[in-house]
């Protein structure tokens, strides 16, 4: 019963976001709200075993959702800007020294590992290539390694970010 309610409610909210600005009841019209209820119930019946596969409702906590939005707009945006200025400098000057290194992530759940891999791909001059599924280590391709760093066996997840401590944020959100 809980998977059905959760997926129907999330589908209803997403439909309301998609049809925003259609009428006069706050932002919506009555027809769109009724259609959203019907579509939400149908989605809940059909997709309840797909959306809630492992019965884990941690991300429904509103504190986690708000901190996720804050993470996108605050620390992640700062790191994204810095990484893009860095990549622009490398493109113009052509000064690269690439290599593939091992990164100890220290994440326990799959969702946190996915978020860390996406953040690594979009932020600091690095690109996740492969993942060791047993130890949850990431193999990342770095566009510019400093001198002497190629002798290190493995990097910690906090070392590659410059200004903000993104792995701590991800742990707070998704674990």
């Amino acid at each position: 019963m809980i998977p059905f309610i959760v997926s129907a409610f999330v589908a209803f909210l997403f439909y309301l976001v998609l049809v925003i600005g259609s009428g006069s009841v706050l932002f919506w019209s009555w027809e769109e709200i009724i259609a959203g209820v019907i579509i939400g119930l149908a989605t809940g019946v059909i997709c309840r075993k797909v959306f809630c596969k492992n019965e884990n409702y941690r991300m429904l906590n509103p504190v986690r959702l708000v901190s996720f939005l804050f993470y996108i707009c605050g620390p992640f945006l700062v790191e994204l800007t810095k990484a893009n200025l860095d990549v622009a400098y490398r493109i113009i000057t052509g000064r690269i020294r690439p290599g593939i290194i091992r990164l100890r992530s220290g994440m326990k759940s799959d969702l946190a590992l996915t978020m860390l891999a996406h953040s690594i791909t979009l932020t600091p001059g690095t690109l996740s290539v492969n993942v060791d599924e047993k130890s949850h280590d990431l193999f990342i391709h770095v566009i510019h390694l400093d001198e002497g760093d190629e002798k290190k066996e493995a990097f910690e997840a906090e070392e590659i970010f410059t200004f903000m401590n993104l792995p701590a944020w991800i742990r707070r959100i998704a674990e």
Partner: peptide, 12 residues
């Protein structure tokens, strides 16, 4: 990776 100083994935 053709110009690469280190390749830990091949070692693993």
């Amino acid at each position: 990776p053709e110009p690469a100083v280190v390749d830990k994935l091949a070692e693993a």
